[in-house]
Design a binder for these strands. Sequence first.
DNA 1: TTTATAACAGACATATAAATCTGATATTAA
DNA 2: TTAATATCAGATTTATATGTCTGTTATAAA
Lengths: 163, 163
Amino acid sequence: MTVIFSKKCELALQAVLYLSVFNDKTYFTATDISKRLNIPKEFLAKILQSLAVHSIVISKKGKTGGFTLGKPLNEIRLIDIVIAIDGLEIFHKCVLGFKGCTVEKPCPLHEKWGKLRDLVYKMLSEETLLEIRDKSVEKIKSIHSINNDALVLAQSFQKRRLN
Amino acid sequence: MTVIFSKKCELALQAVLYLSVFNDKTYFTATDISKRLNIPKEFLAKILQSLAVHSIVISKKGKTGGFTLGKPLNEIRLIDIVIAIDGLEIFHKCVLGFKGCTVEKPCPLHEKWGKLRDLVYKMLSEETLLEIRDKSVEKIKSIHSINNDALVLAQSFQKRRLN
DNA sequence: TTTATAACAGACATATAAATCTGATATTAA
DNA sequence: TTAATATCAGATTTATATGTCTGTTATAAA
């Protein structure tokens, strides 16, 4: 199967985009997020843990615990999420799978692929979550069925858990 | 794991590039090619069969049988090989995995990804095997360790099988 | 016609990614 | 201090892609 992002990567992007809508340091539990995104809870939990290792989210244990974004939105790029989950391997590996493919002895598709790969990296690097959220907040709400009532409710619920 | 091409796709590209060096209607057996490319024979055979279904290669059974390119080099694009093996799905599917992602109700990354996807498609479409071979024949020979002696030998061997 | 050799077809096995489960640990409200 | 509830860690299961095996069919040389 030809793919770009792994399933893990997709779900990580979904989760972080979801958190970006709120972005107010309230902690959302893995259960909360998994229900909203319609994702298996345990799988999401593992993904969030990987993101926590890379400081993209912060985790808090215990009764009022959960996950919240670990950095300002303008410091999180899409590429950071991809790297946190799947690593940089894809940006180094030869398309054709030739182990001996190097700059000195490139495979027949080396140059063409190099351009493509650099472009993917550039596109994923140039935009931060801040820009994406500002541009797409309505889309994100829409695709996750977050209406204003639900938003207020969720936030007040989260905050109630805090005191 | 984030990938671009499946293993099958990689090997298909390798095999077709290999055939493009010769490109003289001689039939190479799956065993021949698998040894040269250092690929499992049975796995390659399956891949070549998929390529045969899409007329990218032609297969011939029996004693002097094997596989040869099914079209002129200038009529085979990289994208044709990708499609033959992995289909067009990747060029239609949403990056984030949202099933509801459409033009009318796009996901937050829809536009950005659309551009990238179109570009990948374009790059794989714009060049045919003819151009790649003409530009990279030495690279292909080098990476497969095809020296001139081996080339002449392989061709005469293939032709001997024919009469 | 016989024999050798190739693709072909489909079942089977293995490796890896995806998903689930169980129990331990940390945190906080009461 | 206790109970509730969250993450965390690792084993286990499931699904899918990858790789292997076995026997059949087609083709052509001898």
